[in-house]
Design a protein around this nucleic acid. Sequence first.
DNA 1: TTGTACGCGTTATCAA
DNA 2: TTGATAACGCGTACAA
Lengths: 391, 391
Amino acid sequence: MEICPKCSQGTSLMKAGFIRGKQRFRCKDCSYYFTLPTAHPKNERRGRHQTTIIDIAQELGVSNSTVSRALHDHPDINLDTKKAILAKAQELDYQPNQLAHNLVKSRTNTVGIVVPEFLTQFFPNIIVGAQRVLRQAGYNLMIMQSGESYENEVANTRTLLANRVDGLIVSMSHETNNYDHFLAFEKRNIPIVYFNRVIEGLGTHKVVANDYQGAFLAVEHLIQNGYRRIAHLGGPPNLLISKERKRGYLEALTKYDLPLLPELVINGDFTSQKAAIYARHLLDLPEPPDAIFAVNDPTAIEILTLAKAKGIRIPEELGVVGFSDDPIAAHIGKGLTTVKQPTDQIGEAAAVMILGIMRGEELAFAPETMVLETELVVRGSSILNVEQRRD
Amino acid sequence: MEICPKCSQGTSLMKAGFIRGKQRFRCKDCSYYFTLPTAHPKNERRGRHQTTIIDIAQELGVSNSTVSRALHDHPDINLDTKKAILAKAQELDYQPNQLAHNLVKSRTNTVGIVVPEFLTQFFPNIIVGAQRVLRQAGYNLMIMQSGESYENEVANTRTLLANRVDGLIVSMSHETNNYDHFLAFEKRNIPIVYFNRVIEGLGTHKVVANDYQGAFLAVEHLIQNGYRRIAHLGGPPNLLISKERKRGYLEALTKYDLPLLPELVINGDFTSQKAAIYARHLLDLPEPPDAIFAVNDPTAIEILTLAKAKGIRIPEELGVVGFSDDPIAAHIGKGLTTVKQPTDQIGEAAAVMILGIMRGEELAFAPETMVLETELVVRGSSILNVEQRRD
DNA sequence: TTGTACGCGTTATCAA
DNA sequence: TTGATAACGCGTACAA
């Protein structure tokens, strides 16, 4: 017969549901809830119960704290009990429950990354770089992808927040104009590193490529190769990346005393659909440009495709330069001249930066923008005799 | 004066440390540890405390269960208190703690996906497809990437297991020969769907493209265009994908009464480094092949690059067909003939399948392999006059 | 309709 | 060196 472990009476006991597969009781006298300690029936686990440290402890007749210590190389433990515990853990195929761990530690050892798209290799490359650094530092990476949708981006950050990531690395969608979902992190002292698609005045830690310099080099290269009516098919005007690339374009024109022709400058977004429309517009102008500096490679590729369809010869009648050095750039036509960004380094730098903030709080107050250098890769879309190279 | 809440005596109490900033006591009589319930000092939150349902409850003077009910549209709740709670939640910027939620529910509403690489667009495409389906069903996707390394793959699955994903979608690395890390999931009744890179005899739920058919079509196409010494640069022999593609190759040769030449069949892996070596070997044979069917596009591209460097004319002297229709295939040289796989559908199918298993247990016992059809995309690497098409 | 009192699995603190 | 217990934040079966 059952007895209340508190008031030691067996009279006014009532059953009160099941807990973890065991009958729960309630003593009416002292209103105490309890379950009876049962010899653990070995093969009578309900459903999909995963073995816990408690299971190990009960099997061995030690306390769960001892088990916890054994599993974490705590110094204060007898070597033999430790051995026994580890053996039993192996035997029961114990797998630590990260959720419980994270809950009690209020830390997840996870950083989230949100990127706008997966469909060019630019962001996946960055992710790989970031992941390498973070993994080595003992952190996990939760990868989220917004598909260039503001709505998805908000949902992604929400999920990461709910899952209590320790930090966030983000490059925003071209739709994003409201930044509350990022401010939610800052409000909670969860560090954010913005990269690539950053906003002026938002955030303190950023990793970007030198877009200005890359754009300048690209346009200067076009000018030096004889192009004069150079158009720019740009990106969404709210992103710094677009501004900087346009700035490089304008500065290069200025330096070489070329007129700025407003009808040759278009702000688009990053979708190839829009790019095709704007490219057609440019090439159908009464006085079409003799060269186009595109904000990125997919845009440039749309231009090349359209030019081919219209029978415009590249590079004789139209010079084209892109941005990012997508793998396709090396293979399309005679090659697409483009500005190469150090994707690996961007990812690594962002990871290193966020690790720094998460670890040493002093860094958190030092605003920091890391600018990585870009490099012009010259191929056949902008120059006649490009030396044979193996990309 | 303090009183023991268990034996209701205030005599033999002793202080026993601090818990969460509160004095802890111990009653010598009943050896019961306790802290005194203190009125929660409102603005005395420690460190980076996120607001919890308890905070909301205390602000409003209701119980946490009431708050919980309000936040989950539980029917048994007064509409006014619910409104007040939701307003207060908004005011305090409450964000649910998914970790705690998952812990208590023993479910995470998350499925993990492990892919071998990120650097071609094949897997990212699949991920996007899977994510779309899962998101709609209210599930999150944890994306892991092994970089074609067995070690990383094991680490990835370990992390997913520790984080208690509800299901796993996986395409394994080419190094993988031991499957214990997958069996760990099956042992715990966590459903797995294998896709693309699957193993015979491992697992019950799979999504694959019709590799055999695709390979057969590819080689038949080469034969019909006059090629006779057709080589095959294959994949790792343990993967079904490699076997099936080779089988398609062999069957096509057989059907057209072409001899099987063992020196023209090579098993490689999926790295372009190895591909370059084997391609060189094939082209340097005393009697080199007049066509090569490559196990995937990166391999085929290595062949094209090498051929160009050696001055071998494509397709006149060498026909090449790849597999997967990587975006580069449409742009390289005169285009690479390749077998197109329905990447979106693969991702979606895998997601739908795992949702089915997770929801209805009856499905879990019905082994199922979904085979999606492939399609030959003919371009300039295998035929002289390919009709002008806009890819 | 609301409150009480656990338990989920883990770590940390203190006592023994 | 080990054990007992609180707490992490939330969901929920019962009781009220």
